[in-house]
Nucleic acid binder design. Structure first.
Length: 337
DNA sequence: CTTATTCA
DNA sequence: TGAATAAGG
């Protein structure tokens, strides 16, 4: 998923309260996929309503978003449009992995194997009404939902550059390549997370990465950062075997341009110019409106409890918190409602 | 993941 | 109370 810059960028740990009053353009696919992958039972089965529809993502969106708003954050959710053509091979590869994982999951479930969960996670697929349902819930919650023409991270980055948002929210680093001045990771409220393997709990705090100071620290330009990414490999190209973040940085600093670096390596990247363009000049739109509305409490209850079998007690509680928090926002933030 | 419940 | 565990749909 996305580009792995390793430790190239300095990550600044922050408190959630540091984001109070700030607009965050959240990559909705990124978070939806996380919810889908993580919100599962012990054997890996996701939350499912009585019609057999998966509801893990709806649970995640309801509770986490309510928490963010309660923390004074103003989230905007940006949904992907058409993927760029160069992404096709990556998407096909992911599909293969998913199908394989699905088989492994069934086997593990049969045997009562604990590994079932991780296979289930790897089999996660966004499909059916998940996107529409997520959008519907977010709209009912009164939040702006933005439709990107292509990649959501690119649109989020554009909105930050436009000063319509403070940061792009995603676990991936791609928004940096798309030119987002600031990205936020670990945008959740519950700080404790179990470390894979042992039952050790670690405090996970939100962190920000600033593009400009990061580039200055590395002594490179954004164009060169894109060159580094293309050497390592992105969602749109495979990258060069044996080249990770450190070697890529060294090569680009030595040569200045990816073309010369590739010459030294005796390698070639197909469609190099188009790939650069994809990051440096991505498809985005200015046709969006950031407007926060009063949450539609009865609409949320109808949608989640009547249509998707959520517990009314839980949903009502969350909805009340949401409405209360939205009122606070209205007093202090002119753009609320 | 987040919330609810249990238990020292 | 706060940490560990179960449940959520």
């Amino acid at each position: 998923m996305g580009i792995d810059f390793g430790d190239l960028f300095e990550k600044k740990e922050i408190d959630l309260s540091d984001l109070r009053g700030k607009v965050i353009a959240i990559d909705a696919y990124n978070i939806l996929y996380q919810f889908l992958s993580i919100i599962r039972q012990r054997d890996g089965t996701p939350l499912i309503d009585s019609h057999g529809e998966i509801t893990s993502h709806l649970s995640g969106f309801l509770y986490r978003t309510t928490n963010l708003i309660e923390a004074g954050i103003r989230p905007v959710f940006v949904f992907d449009g058409e993927p760029p053509e160069f992404k096709n091979s990556t998407l096909n590869e992911r599909k293969k992995i998913r199908v394989e994982a699905m088989v492994r999951w069934e086997e593990a479930k049969e045997k009562g194997d604990e590994a079932a969960f991780k296979y289930a996670q790897a089999s996660s697929q966004i499909k059916g009404n998940m996107i529409e349902d997520a959008k519907k819930l977010l709209v009912l919650m009164g939040l702006p939902v933005i439709q990107a023409p292509s990649e959501g991270e690119a649109q989020a980055a554009f909105m930050v550059r436009n000063n319509d948002a403070y940061a792009a929210g995603s676990q991936d680093y791609d928004a940096l390549l798309f030119g987002a001045p600031v990205i936020v990771r670990n945008l959740a409220v519950t700080g404790k997370r179990k470390l894979p393997g042992m039952g050790v709990y670690v405090d996970i705090k939100p962190q920000i990465i600033e593009l400009e100071s990061g580039l200055t620290g590395l002594g490179i330009t954004r164009e060169q950062l894109v060159d580094i990414a293309l050497l390592i490999g992105t969602d749109y190209n495979a990258g060069i075997k044996g080249i990770g973040p450190k070697k890529a940085l060294k090569l680009i600093k030595k040569h200045g341009y990816i073309e010369q670096a590739l010459d030294e390596l005796g390698e070639d990247i197909k469609n190099l110019a188009e790939l650069k363009e994809l990051f440096l000049n991505p498809a985005v739109t200015s046709d969006y409106e950031l407007k926060w509305k009063k949450p539609d409490a009865s609409g949320i209850i109808e949608f989640l409890c009547i249509q998707h079998d959520f517990s009314e007690a839980r949903v009502s509680k969350a909805t009340e918190r949401l409405i209360e928090a939205s009122k606070d926002g209205q007093q202090t933030l002119d753009r609320w409602f």
